[in-house]
Every structure is written in C-alpha cells, then in structure tokens.
Computed example of a mutant assay.
Amino acid sequence: MGWKKWLLIIPGMFILFGGSVLLGWSILQISNQSDTVAADAGSSVTQEKEEFSKEVINTPVSEEIMVLDSGEKGHDFISEVHAFYDETLTWGRIDTANYEEQKEKAESIIETLTHIKEVKNEELNTDFKNIQTLAETVVKSDDREAMRKLHRYFHDLDIILHGYNYDDTFQITKFRGENKTNSSE
C-alpha cells in the first residue's frame, strides 16, 4: 500500500476510534442519569417514606401497652424490627433483599408475637395479628409485597409508639395512638 493511502487510513482510524469512545461515554452517561432518575422517583413507595423526623411531637404511648415474655420492651422490639427493615428493604433494596435473611426475621417476629404476655389495646392486637399473618407469608414464600407491608407496619408503629410526627406514616395500622382516631385521613 502506498504512503498516500496511509495518510487517509490513519486519520480515519483515529476519527473512528474517537467517535466510538465518545459514543460509549455518552451511552454510559445516559444510563447513569436514568438510574439516578429511577432511584429518585422511588422504585418502591417504601423508599419515599423511609426517612422521618424522630422529634417527639405527640404523646408517646405508655410502654405498658404491651408486655413481652422476654423482658424486652415492646417499644424496643418495634424499633429494632423497623431499623432492620430500613436497612434491608428501603431505597430500592426490596427487589434485591436476601430472602433467607428476611425469612429469619419473619420467624423471629412470629416467635416474639407468640410470646407476648399482654396487649392492652384491641387495635394494636389486631395489628399484631396482621403482622403475624404477613410474617407467616414471608416464611412460606419470597413475597416482596408482604415484606413491604411488614416494613410499613413496623414503621408506623415505631412512629406512633414514640410520639413522632404522625404525618410520616403509611396509615396502615389500625392502632393510631392515644391522640388519633381510627378513621383514615
């Protein structure tokens, strides 16, 4: 091949290579932007409500409302399970959560609820029955919607029991605390 042909081929290869790099970089940027938009839009509603104010603005519910056999405070049990779900299910993690870990937590919830000595509120007792049913569902199958609902129950109960801002709840519980009525808002 003559040197004149090389003068045309070499710049053409540089232009082709540069264009390919630019195209690849553009596709990567578009992909990253769409991932960010999807994350911001909230692939799960759980993500949208995950952060809430821990400022006590309502009267916290007496810890005597539920008594556990284990000696653990019921409020602590609710907060601990809520923290677990915040760590494992929120911000889009519900789709990739480890099922075995979720199953173990559901079994733990069932064990704790089975050994409650006393619940001094019928609506809270109903919520615990619903929670137990959802936990049993998770133990039997990898049901992501049941996991989401479990998180929502513990989220709302944590807020209500501790007197945080009720506006940050999903309104899934029957129990609304001492300052709320049973009607949905």
Rank of each mutant, 00 (worst) to 15 (best):
Q102P: 00
I65W: 02
S184E: 14
L16V: 12
F154S: 08
I172N: 08
I131M: 12
A38T: 07
F17V: 14
K117S: 10
T137W: 01
I30T: 14
I15L: 15
V37N: 09
A39W: 02
N165T: 11
I160A: 03
R144D: 12
G24T: 13
T181W: 08
W6M: 10
K174C: 13
E145Q: 13
I109W: 03
L124I: 05
Q47C: 10
P60L: 07
H115G: 11
V21R: 06
S70K: 06
H115R: 08
V45Q: 14
L7K: 15
I160V: 15
T173E: 08
I159C: 06
T36M: 13
F84T: 05
Y153A: 05
T181F: 10
T36H: 12
S44V: 08
T88V: 06
G71Y: 04
D142W: 00
W6G: 00
E87H: 06
D143W: 05
H162F: 07
D158R: 13
P11E: 10
G12C: 12
D143I: 04
L113Q: 01
I78D: 01
L28W: 13
F52I: 08
E123L: 10
S141H: 09
P60N: 06
L124T: 02
D40Y: 10
K5D: 15
H75F: 10
I57H: 11
K120R: 15
E101P: 00
F14T: 00
T133P: 00
G177H: 05
K4C: 12
G163S: 10
G71Q: 05
T169I: 12
G74K: 00
I131Q: 04
D167N: 12
V119I: 15
M1A: 09
G42E: 05
E51V: 11
L124C: 04
G74F: 03
G18L: 11
D158H: 13
R93W: 09
L8A: 14
K129P: 00
F128R: 00
I10N: 03
E145G: 02
V61Y: 02
W6Q: 06
G18P: 07
S43T: 14
G163C: 10
F128E: 01
D127L: 03
N121C: 05
D76I: 08
V81R: 11
E101N: 10
S26T: 10
D76H: 07
F84A: 06
V61F: 05
D86T: 11
M147D: 07
I160T: 09
L28K: 11
D86L: 12
K129H: 12
M1C: 04
Y153H: 10
T173W: 04
M66K: 01
G74N: 01
D86F: 09
K105E: 15
T46S: 13
G74A: 09
P60S: 02
V139F: 05
A135L: 10
T96R: 01
T173R: 06
L124W: 03
Q171S: 12
N121D: 15
A97E: 08
